[in-house]
Design a protein around this nucleic acid. Structure first.
Length: 422
RNA sequence: GGUGAGGUGGAUGAGUGGCUGAAAUCAACGGUUUGCUAAACCGUCGUACGGUUGUAAAGCCGUACCGAGGGUUCGAAUCCCUCCCUCACCGCCA
């Protein structure tokens, strides 16, 4: 959620920038400002009247104490008149505030200056491409065949247990998941992130805080009996840890990491996009989240990108880094870098991480603040990224590392996995 | 699931209709002093919104907030209703 003062100060700029996100209702910005003007007016009127009521009530109390009943009764009727005038103002104020809020949440975050214009993923900017394509043996297979050959992931049984998109990992497949999770977490914690194991279900307030609600409820699994949502990413519970908190500046930066399963209801695409592990309803992911001083968020974004990049390098995967164009960015993000790994057998790029700076967009909603050196509270900036999402990493590892004798396990994983081959 | 108790500022905790935006203690912050890994003393110490003064830093005034929402009343942390949550014991269970 954008801040109204920011919209007032940079009205034109905001409209220009929102155009880069292909936002089609720039007049909503003016609407917000007009509604806020109204809000101020009604607030002023309400405060004035209510102040009078409060003063008179005190006087009545003093008159009663002195035993001047008649004077008190007289005042009471005066107050009654005032209160009659107060009621419509109260209603108008509430209505205006509600409307303001409704319009405000429709405005996406303003993209940073670095964001390229564009509408589709083709317009994303490739920042870097690195790593080599391995020479695959003849008869190289895509991962959905490899997992059958080595019997490490079983989709059919997943369908039997739950439905499509709920894979069952088995034997070495399960072990490899565990190895990846442990390796990723250790990598993150040694970089200074604190590990968390959060709940996998959240309440409405948390889902609202990170922007899943309102609007995107269809993308989450919902438990009506308890009004809980299954988390689509660890970002939701982890960022909400600091909801409604004011932290000390000396406690910054706050760096958190968590492994969680992620649950996504989203109606899938079609064809090879959804085959195998490319797109599933339940998957594992290790997430990193930072809450930082607003002056530092872009520096931290670069650090997080470098952090994820080194992790991919350590796995020996060919990857590329994209700076997302306005049209492909999420609603809440100001700047996003996507990481994609090369799937040698499918001959396509698979997204495995998305690292974003949300500036104060999320923290404004969640009221995550810090006290600056002058003792004033200011919103923090929030950032998050995957480090990393497992299924596509697994797919790429299986495909790129297949040999006639089996699948090679990257060196950094071997101590976690317990052997060098599947 | 059953029974009971309760939700007050960073923490503990007082406060059952007006002088309570809220005692006290602790923590935190600033200072003084003595000195050595600390004590004593003094001071400061919630948030949001609105108005106003000021170039600004900041100040002043007002409004709201004592789990959330509603009600009674001239006036509510205090009374009533609904909801949420926490704790304890019991039941069930990993």
């Amino acid at each position: 959620m954008l801040q109204v003062t920011f919209l007032r100060q940079h009205t034109l700029l905001v409209k220009e920038k929102l155009a880069i996100k292909n936002f089609s209702n720039p007049e909503l910005v003016d609407e917000v400002i007009a509604l806020d003007d109204q809000r101020k007016q009604f607030t002023f009127q309400y405060d004035e009247l209510q102040g009078q009521v409060n003063r008179m009530s005190k006087e009545i109390g003093m008159l009663m104490a002195k035993g001047e009943k008649e004077a008190a009764e007289c005042k009471k009727s005066e107050v009654a008149d005032l209160k009659a005038g107060l009621q419509p103002i109260t209603e108008q104020l509430a209505a205006t505030e509600k409307l303001l809020q409704e319009v405000l949440v429709k405005l996406p975050n303003v993209p940073s200056d670095l964001v390229p214009a564009g509408k589709t993923p083709e317009d994303n900017l490739t920042i870097k491409e690195q790593g080599s394509v391995p020479d695959l043996p003849s008869g190289a297979m895509p991962h959905w065949d490899l997992i059958k050959k080595y019997d490490i992931v079983d989709f059919e049984t997943g369908v039997k247990l739950t439905g499509s998109g709920f894979p069952v990992y088995k034997g070495k497949g399960a072990k490899l998941q565990r190895a990846l999770i442990s390796y990723f977490l250790d990598y993150n914690t040694s970089a200074g992130y604190t590990e968390f194991i959060p709940p996998y279900m959240v309440n409405e307030a948390s889902a609202y805080g990170t922007g899943q609600l309102p609007d995107k409820e269809g993308q989450m699994y919902y438990m009506p009996a308890d009004n809980f949502y299954l988390i689509p990413t660890a970002e939701v519970p982890v960022t909400n840890i600091y909801r409604d908190e004011i932290v000390k500046e000396s406690d910054l930066p706050i760096q958190m990491t968590a492994y969680t399963p992620c649950f996504r209801r989203e109606a899938g695409s079609f064809g090879s996009d959804v085959r195998g592990l490319n797109r599933v309803h339940q998957f594992d992911k290790v997430e990193i989240v930072q809450l930082v001083h607003p002056d530092k968020s872009y520096q931290v974004l670069d650090e997080m990108v470098a952090h994820v990049e080194k992790l991919l390098q350590s796995l020996g995967l060919k990857y590329r880094i994209l700076r997302l164009c306005g049209g492909d960015m999420s609603f809440a993000s100001a700047l996003t870098y996507d990481f994609e790994v090369w799937s040698a057998a499918q001959k396509k790029w698979l997204e495995c991480s998305s690292v974003s700076n949300f500036e104060a967009f999320q923290t404004n909603r969640m009221k995550i603040r810090f006290k600056d050196t002058n003792g004033k509270s200011q919103l923090l900036h929030s950032l998050n990224g995957s480090s990393l999402a497992l299924p596509r990493i697994m797919a790429a590892l299986l495909e790129n590392n297949q040999t006639e004798n089996g699948i090679l396990i990257p060196e950094v994983l071997q101590s976690y996995f317990g052997s060098s081959m599947i």
